[in-house]
Amino acid sequence: MGNSVLKRSIMKKQIVAISGLLLIGFLFAHLAGNMLLFGPPEGINEYAQKLQELGPILWLFRIGLALTFAVHISFTLWVALENRAARSGRYAVSNDRGGTDFATKTMVYSGLLIAVYLLLHLSDFAFGDHYGEATIVAGAETEESLGLYGLIWNSFIQPWRVVVYVFAVGVVGLHVSHGLQSFIQTLGFANDDVLPVLKTVSRIVGLLIALGYAAIPIYMIVRHYTIGIGA
């Protein structure tokens, strides 16, 4: 039994599951903060400011989050490559039996899409210029920078950005809709009674995450074309 425990199939998946649950936790925390975008610009700006003031703690958190992503992605790819190798050839006809669903079959692809979008998202907002010209909102009461709020507003009054964002958070929701119940099953907490309930709960959580995030750009672009930012 010289084999490392980490190499065992079940362990690898449990690492994917635990890192995935941490990321779902982050999604909820991030969404809670984002709800401030429904309020006045000062709300989110002060929140962002407070986070910045945490200094080293914020960086500790960022590094932890980045590591969680790295572990989640690398172990998944390891498992996925092994799975590909385990099939000796494709079936000429492939036909599902009603066990799997769209979200499950596309986990690797939805995950990769999220990873790509995440990089865009970070460069747009987290590491974007929170004070520059892009944060000045045309038609606002003030001609001064509206900070992070202004940056987000200026992004989300552009229809194509709204479409990309809503699509991206839809993919996140799809990923979570399988991921949550998969976590419970892989850690071994499921049984015949709870698994069907878990599948439904998991889909609802995925839907809530997608709707919660999608509401923000939709609110902003609707407001832009109706009452405007100033009202």
Partner: peptide, 30 residues
Amino acid sequence: GNCSNHYECEAACPKNIKVSNIARLNRDHL
């Protein structure tokens, strides 16, 4: 390969073996 919780196995099993057994395997192994 590694299980990724498609549950196609349970649907195809002629003896209706449940995936709850896989959950038991996962927790016993952990």
